[in-house]
């Protein structure tokens, strides 16, 4: 198949003709009704009128579903950790309290996202089965064999999933841009995830790990090549580009200080990078079966 011919064919296709099944279309049309519920009270602004072009809006539902799956995964991780009896959590009571708060936030996010999906007339996907050791129910070697007995291992997985959650939301925002209400809500969820990630990282640092509150090239790696490393793929980018593809010449801009490592550490730290839906889904798959 000639790729250029394929692209030409795609370019000639009217996006309206790419609409999918009738139930999906109906769901989209009613997505606009999703402000009357709980969210409206929390966020005092109205829904933007949905554009007629359905293709973009279908992606909104796909984005919401990805977010829901990630939030459920995180909620289950915290829920199981909090259910562990004995001395799993350290003596510092703020550690457990922080995980309690994070679990509560994830529950709230699940309610919010499910409401958004259901209010639109669509159906939330079924919850998956989770295996946080990463063995996929005993069918492959473990990634986090002692996740609920070794608190540091639990924190490493929590960091991985929170950082990836931030990146996954970031990867979806551009597909939400046709709906101001959903876009803003997603960014607020995104910021909450970033606070979670920073707190988890600070907890790890307090327990002796080499890690900063933001992903840094100086962090000790917590990933397995070919598996969990997808969570940080591209995160340490040394280069940023403008929308017109011009690189930002940080080496020529007044960002540096004598003797500092601003170009090799500061720049990658200063930007959180997006994950695509495919990358985020691959990460989810490591802990679901």
């Amino acid at each position: 198949m000639n790729i250029l011919k394929l692209l030409a064919n795609l370019a000639e296709t009217n996006p309206e003709q790419l609409e999918q099944s009738a139930p999906r279309r109906a769901a989209l049309e009613s997505l606009g009704r999703f402000s009357a519920k709980a969210l409206a009270a929390a966020l005092p602004f109205g829904l933007a009128t949905l554009p007629a072009q359905a293709r973009t809006t279908l992606t909104i539902l796909d984005s919401l579903d990805l977010a829901l799956q990630l939030e459920r995964l995180q909620e289950a991780l915290y829920s199981r950790a909090l259910a562990v009896t004995g001395t799993f959590f350290p003596a510092d009571p703020t550690f457990r309290a922080s995980v309690v708060a994070m679990q509560r936030h994830q529950q709230q996010h699940i309610v919010l996202l499910t409401d958004a999906i259901v209010s639109s007339g669509s159906t939330a996907s079924a919850p998956a089965n989770y295996d946080f050791t990463g063995t996929k129910n005993g069918t492959q070697p473990a990634l986090f064999a002692d996740v609920f007995t070794d608190f540091d291992q639990f924190l490493r997985l929590a960091q991985l999933l929170e950082d990836a959650g931030v990146r996954a939301y970031k990867g979806q925002v551009e597909y939400l841009s046709t709906n101001d209400f959903i876009l803003q809500t997603a960014l607020q969820l995104h910021a909450t995830e970033a606070r979670h990630a920073a707190r988890i990282r600070v907890m790890r640092k307090q327990r002796g790990a080499t890690v900063k509150p933001w992903p840094s090239p100086t962090d000790t790696s917590i990933t397995v090549a070919g598996k969990t490393d997808i969570a940080y793929a591209g995160e340490d980018a040394l280069q940023q580009y403008l929308p017109d593809f011009r690189p930002v010449p940080f080496q020529l801009l007044p960002v540096g200080f004598p003797g500092s490592t601003v170009l090799t550490q500061g720049v990658p730290e200063a930007f959180d990078e997006p994950l695509t839906l495919v990358q985020a889904t691959a990460l989810l798959a490591l802990f679901t079966y």
Binding site: E174, Q184, A194, R195, A198, P213, P243, D244, D272
Partner: peptide
């Protein structure tokens, strides 16, 4: 961010926003 009308600029701001949230935390 919702007022941005091009996805390129929206993505630019989103890259900064979560780092600010990490700073805040």
């Amino acid at each position: 961010a919702k007022h941005i009308t091009t996805t390129g600029y929206l993505n630019m701001l989103a890259k900064l926003a979560s780092v600010e949230a990490r700073h805040a935390a």
